[in-house]
Amino acid sequence: MMLLWVLFLLFAQFSLLAVGGANAVVPEIHRVVVGELGWLSGQQFADLFAIAQAAPGPNVLIVSLIGWHMAGVPGAAVSLLGICLPSSLLSFAVARWWQRVQGSRLALAIERGLAPLTVGLVLAGASMMLHALTLDARGLLLCAASALLAWRLRLNPLWLLAGGGLLGMLGWV
């Protein structure tokens, strides 16, 4: 029961930091659950992150997978509630306030300030995921090729994941 409270409170804190979505706090989640708490190894975290990204649904699925790893279905439910509830309540309150100040200089300044913050947090998440993996030259080449294909061809990411999985199964990566 204590672990469920810890999961809820941990992810409730992350919820309030997740400006731009759950992917924005992935580096901090990694730092805490891998580095501080030792609940997962770097590779386990990367695996859960890959599963969460491949699955249909919101990016927040990584949280429920960590909760499931730690405490089964109750852990998944409590973790998901922890990451969703505080930010949802805050969003509701801010939306009501935003309706009153929309179009003001303050609102414009907030919009301009949050955009680069969100981009930076997402890029930090991508950087952290690269550091969590042990990639050799072939792995780095696959990563670069996947990024290039996704950018230039606008492929569905599931095709890229399937291709990477196939190359892994064949032992090429």
Rank of each mutant, 00 (worst) to 15 (best):
L166R: 01
A95D: 09
G171Y: 11
L130C: 15
P74G: 12
L160G: 06
R96G: 15
L48C: 09
L4Y: 12
G125M: 12
S41Y: 00
A22D: 05
L133F: 00
G20T: 04
P116K: 07
L89P: 04
A107T: 03
L153N: 06
S127F: 10
L170W: 12
G103A: 10
G164A: 05
L170F: 02
L123C: 11
L61C: 01
G75P: 01
L37M: 14
G120D: 12
G42T: 11
A145M: 13
L148H: 03
S79F: 11
Q13P: 01
P74E: 14
A126P: 06
V94M: 05
S64K: 00
G67I: 02
A71S: 14
G42F: 08
F45V: 06
A54M: 10
H131S: 14
A137K: 09
C143W: 09
L133H: 08
P86I: 10
A124I: 01
A126V: 14
I83K: 02
L133G: 09
L7I: 03
M129D: 14
D136Q: 11
W5P: 07
I29R: 00
L160T: 04
G75D: 07
N156S: 11
E36G: 04
V34Y: 02
G38P: 07
G168Y: 07
L117W: 12
G21N: 04
A50E: 00
P74N: 13
